[in-house]
């Protein structure tokens, strides 16, 4: 799925003061691209990801996905779009603690009101694919960090989305576990043509991506536009 942002801006209101976060972002991501998004803390990486993923309303500008201006739709339309086309993975896996692994993975399918049996079968398949066939009936509290993140990934894939938006999916994991998650994302991109945007702090992981975006106070820079990221990022890493 092609994602386009046109002069996207976002600001918050705090006690009557405007706090700008994103200022006039223009970006176009082609279908099947694997993109990394880096930048210093507070630069608005997560906000950009949320606005692109229809989780947050833009203050100005448009988000166009496959030629559809998403924010022109009804709330139900936006929710359905999110349900069918987009999969999210977060730094803190954000699983529902009351539900078992398989129930968590089934959840997007149940939100789509698909038949229970079909949803369960697919959830079982997905969990097997991420190597958790033995953990179906475990609650998140009984799983390790890496396992939890793999459940979250399986959940994101439940409705066979076109886009995967990952917000520091490995931020909470050790190096090798994190690499494992990344490998799964890369494989999904290669095998299924999944468009993926991965926010990361890890420069080594970002380097592996074919296309790299960098967001800081000055705005968004694109590796396709020939901007070198390494120098900038070293400075950013030093900052808290």
């Amino acid at each position: 799925m092609k994602i386009e942002a046109r002069s996207l801006s976002k600001h918050y209101w705090l006690n009557g003061h405007q706090i700008p976060v994103l200022k006039g972002i223009d970006v176009s991501i082609q279908s099947g691209e694997l993109v990394s998004l880096t930048g210093p803390s507070g630069a608005g990486k997560s906000t950009l990801l949320h606005v692109l993923g229809t989780l947050d309303t833009p203050s100005g500008g448009d988000v166009i996905m496959d030629g559809v201006d998403v924010w022109k739709q009804t709330p139900a339309g936006i929710a359905r779009f999110r349900n069918e086309r987009i999969g999210f993975v977060f730094q803190f896996h954000h699983l529902l603690p009351e539900f078992t692994a398989i129930e968590n993975v089934m959840m997007p399918g149940r939100v789509a009101r698909r038949p229970w049996a079909e949803v369960e079968q697919r959830a079982r398949l997905l969990l097997t694919e991420v190597g958790l066939a033995q953990r179906l009936e475990h609650r998140p509290g009984e799983l390790s960090g890496g396992e939890q993140q793999r459940v979250a990934l399986a959940r994101a894939l439940m409705n066979d989305p076109k886009v995967l938006l990952a917000d520091e999916p490995t931020g909470n994991l050790d190096e090798s576990t994190g690499r494992g998650i990344h490998e799964i994302i890369e494989r999904l991109n290669k095998d299924r043509g999944l468009t993926a945007i991965v926010v990361t702090h890890n420069p080594r992981l970002a380097e592996r991506m074919p296309r790299r975006l960098h967001l800081d106070k000055e705005g968004l820079r694109d590796s396709n536009g020939g901007v070198t990221l390494k120098a900038k990022q070293a400075g950013a890493e030093a900052a808290p």
């Binding site: 993923g53 989780l55 709330p75 139900a76 929710a79 359905r80 779009f81 999110r82 349900n83 069918e84 999210f88 954000h94 699983l95 529902l96 603690p97 959840m107 997007p108 939100v111 789509a112 959940r155 409705n159």
Partner: peptide, 15 residues
């Protein structure tokens, strides 16, 4: 937190 997660999955406000 759970409400937010459900919304990211496409649960509507009314749901």
């Amino acid at each position: 937190k759970e409400i937010s997660i459900l919304k990211t999955m496409g649960a509507t406000d009314t749901s």
